[in-house]
Design a protein around this nucleic acid. Structure first.
Lengths: 142, 142
DNA sequence: ATGCCTGCAAATATTTTGCAACTGC
DNA sequence: GCAGTTGCAAAATATTTGCAGGCAT
């Protein structure tokens, strides 16, 4: 397991022409295991447990690097700071307009999405990111 | 014209129980005329032309107020700071992953969107916000 | 050996807050 | 007049950058 993960991370780095450092490896592993949409500060707090000397600047630099490389994605901010998520499966978000909670929803459950790969102005489509804005079950009761 | 706009702004304020101040009125009018997805700083710069003494803090406070009231909407941030847009017509965004340019696209041209008003977990849908991520025509040539 | 990376500290940028004076209702 | 609003300045947050030393390749 660990061997595989390490290996694929090495490959990822090679593909993107970046060096495999201890900090990067831990950062990557930690982020893979984090659910939701962590902010850099939250990621930093987690990584610090394993690499106490790591700097917040390093976390920022590498998150940007990962986002540029397509390893992770930047996510819409109905919060207040940079958020990321992993590239895993294709899913979208339900955002509660009362409590601001963000919940994932799969492409199937969402039930929409056509597949044009080109839009009017010649825009080449890579993917769709859908935010469903509404009221979550919990807030409806209040 | 001006009378009408002023009137509807007054109504908007009454509906939301907020006072009609000169600053707010100008802020509202300026934002209505701004295209794209202005940041608070950009809005501030514009409003300052008409109300030189206005403070950035006031701009922030009122943008939040407008967003809470549903006059404007907060927009996903593939930029770096708070962005808003007006509630006018139903449209979505095409975001170029190269140059980060955001272009509006109408609901019709987009060609997707189903109309379920309730999703699996009991989530009550208010609206969909779709970002199409891809490459704009300009960047495809490079 | 070389150039990419790191940590640190300082610089920037962004957003919020406290408060006294002022204004709409 | 009272409550809500403004401007200012300072604080709090968030993010970026320069640089000297260290590590991956």
């Amino acid at each position: 397991m660990l061997v595989n993960e390490a290996k694929s991370f090495r490959e990822l780095c090679r593909e993107n022409g970046i060096a495999v450092t201890h900090q990067r490896q831990v950062l990557y592993e930690v982020m893979k295991t984090m659910h939701g949409h962590p902010s850099p500060e939250e990621v930093y707090a987690q990584v610090k447990k394993r690499v106490p000397a790591i700097s917040l600047a390093t976390v920022y630099k590498n998150i940007h690097l990962f986002v540029e490389s397509g390893v992770f994605r930047e996510v819409s901010m109905h919060h207040g700071s940079l958020r990321v998520e992993m590239n895993d499966e294709s899913h979208h978000h339900m955002v509660c307009s009362k409590c601001k909670a963000i919940t994932d929803i799969g492409e199937k459950e969402l039930g929409l999405v056509s597949k044009q790969d080109r839009l009017p102005s010649g825009f080449l489509v890579e993917r769709y990111a859908v935010d469903v804005i509404g009221i979550c079950a919990k807030c409806q009761q209040a």
